[in-house]
Design a binder for these strands. Sequence first.
DNA 1: CCTTCCCGACTACATCTGTAATCGTAATTG
DNA 2: CAATTACGATTACAGATGTAGTCGGGAAGG
Lengths: 122, 122
Amino acid sequence: MAERISDAEHEVMEVLWAEAPLDAHDVAHRLADRQAWTLATVKTLLSRLLAKGAVAHEEAGRKFLYRPAIERTDYVAGEGRRLVDRLFGGKLSPLIAHLAEREALTADDIAEIEALLREIKS
Amino acid sequence: MAERISDAEHEVMEVLWAEAPLDAHDVAHRLADRQAWTLATVKTLLSRLLAKGAVAHEEAGRKFLYRPAIERTDYVAGEGRRLVDRLFGGKLSPLIAHLAEREALTADDIAEIEALLREIKS
DNA sequence: CCTTCCCGACTACATCTGTAATCGTAATTG
DNA sequence: CAATTACGATTACAGATGTAGTCGGGAAGG
């Protein structure tokens, strides 16, 4: 399980997480504005995701309808953890410190995070 | 600039960020407990990092001494941003929410982050 | 029915990565 | 000085990735 999903594959996943099931054409279409990929490329990515077990497909006549087989939430949490482990010894605060220091969180961002923390505490 | 540094290369960078300059042997040595890499492998990684401009080397007799050519701070901030952009539309709070929700930040973690935010606000 | 088109499956291929071995040369050791 | 070592440079090679083309079979259109 948990075969790594590549960047390109991830783009495809985002499309399916936003809407599914979709066939290869639909996926290629939704990707059109972000990526200049041919349909062939999108098909390849879908096959690889299928092989990795990240999407499932169901037959609909002569074509396939694809849908995510993993939760975006899980994927995102996994990637987040990976990064935080790799770069911050597993601690979140240094990540926040870094981003904050270098890109100035807006007051709104800060308020949002504080609210979030307050909620977690309860 | 900013050639992507791979995972294996990153391990090498961490060693050099912790202590530099070091020659290939030293680097291999410090890596010994985390990675079962041969000296040859470490040398390859150092060459690649050199080619990518992530480390610099200076001649010391018949060997080279390597040192980082990029700041860990910059690397970390870049990677952090990459992730946050890719997965959270550039916003930090969802990352925090995710990690918090799935892995229970300790009260200490939360206090630390809050202190940090307070400081940023000032 | 025959031709055309569409689809998924398979193949292609350069680059990057992980992981190393080998080669040529310069230093070290005897 | 000869034999051995120690280095960096070069080469190797399989798997992942980005990006796509081709092929064979069935559906659709005439």
